[in-house]
Nucleic acid binder design. Sequence first.
DNA 1: GACTGTGACG
DNA 2: CGTCACAGTC
Lengths: 265, 265
Amino acid sequence: MVSVTTWNINSVRLRMPIVADFLKQEAPDILCLQEIKCEEHLFPYDAFRALGYEHFAVHGQKGYHGVGTVSRIPIQEYSRHDWQANGEARHVGVELAEGPGKGTVIENVYVPAGGDIPDREQNPKFGQKLDFLERMTRWADGIERPTLIVGDFNIAPLESDVWSHKQLLKVVSHTPLEVETLQRFMDAHGWSDIGREHIKAPERYYSWWSYRSKDWRKGDRGRRLDHMWASPELARQATAHRVLEDARSWEKPSDHVPLTTEFAL
Amino acid sequence: MVSVTTWNINSVRLRMPIVADFLKQEAPDILCLQEIKCEEHLFPYDAFRALGYEHFAVHGQKGYHGVGTVSRIPIQEYSRHDWQANGEARHVGVELAEGPGKGTVIENVYVPAGGDIPDREQNPKFGQKLDFLERMTRWADGIERPTLIVGDFNIAPLESDVWSHKQLLKVVSHTPLEVETLQRFMDAHGWSDIGREHIKAPERYYSWWSYRSKDWRKGDRGRRLDHMWASPELARQATAHRVLEDARSWEKPSDHVPLTTEFAL
DNA sequence: GACTGTGACG
DNA sequence: CGTCACAGTC
């Protein structure tokens, strides 16, 4: 069995105390973090080692973005794409280096948020987000090995992925254009949406609640921005999937919560 | 009996938890804070009221400096000098409004730090500090009522007020020029240095330890920058004086510790 | 609302 | 080392 967690941590240095709590409690084999917000040499390697996580693939930059994959089973860095070709650290890929599942690829990605206005002309960041997804789509077309891609996709595709489909139709993260673009990425490889295989629509499923409200539970205005997608054959080996909503209430929380999937490898 | 505390708090909003602890523990009648670092409308009045302190004289500004006098016995704002005439909030004066000691004046002051280089030409801030003290000296010359002046004077006048007289002779806060300038202020009214009346030189007496060292106790590199000076007749009524060095070890401490004097009024 | 870096100030 | 302000991002 191999378990994998994805978590947009919104500063790994600031959040290391709750990351440690999470690892002690949930003990996934592999933890994929997004928005680590630090350069690679400032990543808290020692704190992870002290918890038994001794394998790393970190793609960081100063201040913004950045992803890091941390593991207690051997992994090997496999790829590091810059799909925007602008130097931003938004992806790192690893493969399982030993044991059952050896060669399985785990891609950790942080898709651009896309700014406020869902219009390429008025808001270049929205265009960048779509372009990023389209380049990922072309890349996915050539995937030949069993692959798990996880991370903050910054898109909530289904109606039951948001607290109000109607009120979010023109809000970046849930616009039809983004949803279609994400669908093309899905089709390019035939990804299986593990989250929705285990928590079927139309059941409510969120992974993010804004900081901009006193009580995140009040109104439950969440969105499912974080995802775990697998190649079809790998998806069939997923035996369990959990969303740790409680983490949104922890001390100094991230605005995202961790998602975990177990695989019978 | 009336007890008065002076404490450079280095942000009253950030430090309110330890201020509350202090008031519960020491319960002075009057608390004079410096470096409150907030505008008046952001001063935590309610937190003080909840502790039984319902009388205030606050002179604040955005971000820097600022002084506030908080009392559980009636006080009345008396003066608010701008000795530099540059709009900085560095002084507020009150008088006891009722009971024994009615009319006694308590001045709360935050003398400019003076920058790094002890030279007017190279460092205008050093000149401003001296000018500030000289204007206070002219003001002190006209004092006619029993007065207590407390606060962060940013000068450690005596050899035993610093961890190394020799090593600090050219360090702003202990230069001969500052010490002479402070002495002229003392002479202008005949102030009595209550701290040194109770803890006589050459006994070690510090009220500040820099943040710039891991362990403030290591080497004990302190300075006596905070003072409580009284008119001669008032000084004779001072019955006790304490320095709460422990406060330097509290959770998220200020770099200054509170000084308290009791008066038999 | 909460994070980052920066720069000023101590 | 540690505070605040500011601007940028999400």
